[in-house]
């Protein structure tokens, strides 16, 4: 008697969350009838150009009003760089103690991954959410999705494209890796490095076509890299948040600013964010381009 049967016997009905459920009719005719369109359909028929005209006039008025209010606000704004004293309280702390506390020579990376790390954690999950939406929308290898009707000439067998890619891609990958790894020392970091590497992956996929991209970056590789990078990011930052909030000593030291292995957790986090960004960008390219990995 498994637990479920005992529970069902206790409750008097069978807990059966996994009963095979036949797919529901996707679209009942009734759901198609948006009734408040009734009067807008009359307007559409009668209005036609008139509605178009009213819409345009309203649009012009609305955008002119918006533009004038915005320009008025700019005219009323403080003169940046000149009367800036209220900005200094926060920036002074970031600049003078930034390197000391976070160990990052690049203060912007220090802010992103140490001071305001919760925003950047949310940021990587915006990317993760976008890629799951794109997969949910466009994935075509589902069992009963519409058959792939689009055939188009695969441009990857073009010799000129392949030769230029063979010359260019290593340089771009090297540059992306540099920007990623030196994020805390020189300008760059997780997002920029990841975007450059993602662009390099797109070049490889478009130049060498299905055979190479099918083998190197299959869907399994994509999922494992994204999941491992995001879980590392989530756990790593939760550790620092927890130790920081409760005043415990965190074992991650800052190292001496300037050399590559300094700045505590920033460099590994940059690598993790870079991997997430690169995989996300590549995944979106594949989905929008070919609707399958």
């Amino acid at each position: 008697m498994s637990i479920r049967d005992k529970l069902s016997a206790l409750l008097g009905f069978d807990i059966d969350f996994d009963a095979p459920v036949p797919p529901r009719k996707t679209e009942t005719a009734a759901e198609q009838t948006p009734d408040e369109w009734r009067f807008s359909r009359r307007i559409m028929r009668a209005g036609g150009r008139r509605l178009g005209a009213i819409y345009k006039i309203l649009g012009v008025i609305c955008s002119v009003v918006l533009m004038s209010t915005l320009l008025l606000t700019v005219a009323g704004m403080p003169r940046y760089g000149v009367d800036q004293e209220y900005m200094d309280t926060v920036t002074y702390e970031y600049i003078s103690h930034g390197m000391e506390y976070t160990g990052a020579v690049n203060i912007v990376s220090g802010i992103i991954l140490e001071y305001r790390a919760f925003d950047t954690l949310g940021e990587s999950f915006v990317l993760f959410c976008a890629v799951s939406c794109v997969l949910a929308l466009l994935r075509a290898d589902g069992a009963d999705s519409e058959p792939e009707r689009v055939e188009y000439r695969d441009i990857s067998c073009d010799p000129i494209l392949r030769r230029t890619m063979r010359a260019v891609v290593p340089i771009v990958l090297l540059y992306g890796a540099y920007v990623l790894l030196f994020g805390h020392l020189s300008p760059g970091g997780g997002f920029s490095g990841g975007a450059v590497i993602g662009a390099a992956l797109i070049m490889i996929a478009s130049a060498y076509g299905e055979d190479v991209s099918g083998r190197i970056l299959t869907e399994r590789v994509f999922k494992t890299v994204t999941t491992c990078a995001l879980s590392f990011y989530c756990l790593g930052k939760s550790y620092t948040f927890y130790t920081g909030a409760n005043g415990l000593h965190s074992v991650i030291g800052n190292g001496t600013p300037g050399n590559i292995l300094s700045a505590g957790l920033i460099m590994p986090l940059n690598v993790a964010v870079g991997m997430v960004v690169a995989c996300t960008i590549y995944g979106m390219y594949r989905m929008i381009g070919q609707r399958r990995f």
């Binding site: 926060v90 140490e114 001071y115 305001r116 790390a117 919760f118 948040f241 909030a245 965190s250």
Partner: peptide
């Protein structure tokens, strides 16, 4: 209030 990370109010989330 719960400061995220090792830094206090106006500087961190």
């Amino acid at each position: 209030r719960y400061n995220m990370g090792h830094f206090d109010a106006p500087w961190s989330n």
